[in-house]
Computed example of a mutant assay.
Amino acid sequence: MISRSLMRRPPSRALPPGVLFRRVAVPVAIGLALMIGGIGPAPREAGAAGSVVVRAAAGSVRARDAHNRRVRVHNQTGWTMTRFYALAARSSARESNLLGVEALASGGSWALDLDDGSGACVFDFRAEFANSHTLIRQGVNVCHIADYYFTR
């Protein structure tokens, strides 16, 4: 038998007439994490075991189109990835190592957001490995994929 106190309805959270939304306080760290797609310090945050999440674009600059430029890079080479570069195919900008001081072990994955506000969808990827091998993939359309697999 359920007691009468458990059967009571919770107080109504209905909004007063004319109010379209209720303001909710969110701690700044969580609010920033939600804007970049996960919980953790920006720009680098912990992901699932063996993964790293990085926001490649600095600040909150976003392209005005509706394309999602988030892609998860999977290392299935059997080698440890020590550096990763992604450069818009039509760009002449200098590229920087997006892995930073991290390394991506074989079998690991890494999520990043390549939206830099330019509207670019096609990127060239370059991965460097601990054994001095380099793999280059040109013309990767990150607006049409969610995962990219590096294999030998």
Rank of each mutant, 00 (worst) to 15 (best):
G37F: 04
A105K: 13
S118R: 06
G119M: 04
R23W: 11
R55L: 07
R8H: 13
P11E: 10
A130V: 14
I2T: 10
P11F: 10
C121A: 13
A130P: 03
R152L: 15
V52R: 07
H74N: 15
R83S: 09
S96V: 15
L20E: 15
A14L: 14
V101I: 11
A58C: 09
S5A: 12
Y85D: 00
G139R: 01
D115C: 03
C121T: 14
G40H: 05
G107N: 05
A57L: 13
D124I: 01
A111L: 05
E128H: 07
V19G: 00
A86H: 00
G38Y: 00
R90E: 14
D65F: 07
L6T: 12
A105V: 12
R62T: 05
E45F: 11
A120S: 11
L15T: 06
D113N: 15
V53E: 00
P11S: 11
H67N: 09
A25C: 11
N131P: 02
R94K: 07
A29K: 10
L34F: 09
R8V: 11
H144I: 06
S106E: 04
P43T: 06
L87A: 05
R152N: 13
G59E: 08
V54N: 01
R126K: 15
Y149H: 13
P10V: 15
A57Q: 08
A146D: 13
E95P: 09
P27I: 02
P27N: 08
L98F: 04
R72V: 11
R4P: 04
A105R: 10
A93R: 14
V19W: 01
A57E: 05
E45C: 11
R62Y: 10
F123V: 00
R22F: 04
Y148A: 08
V26Y: 11
A103E: 06
L20H: 12
H133N: 13
A33P: 02
N75K: 02
Y148S: 04
G139V: 03
V19L: 06
G78M: 02
N75L: 02
Y148V: 10
M35T: 09
F129M: 08
A58N: 09
G18V: 05
S60G: 08
D147H: 14
L99G: 02
A42T: 11
T77E: 05
R72W: 03
L104C: 07
P16N: 09
D113Y: 07
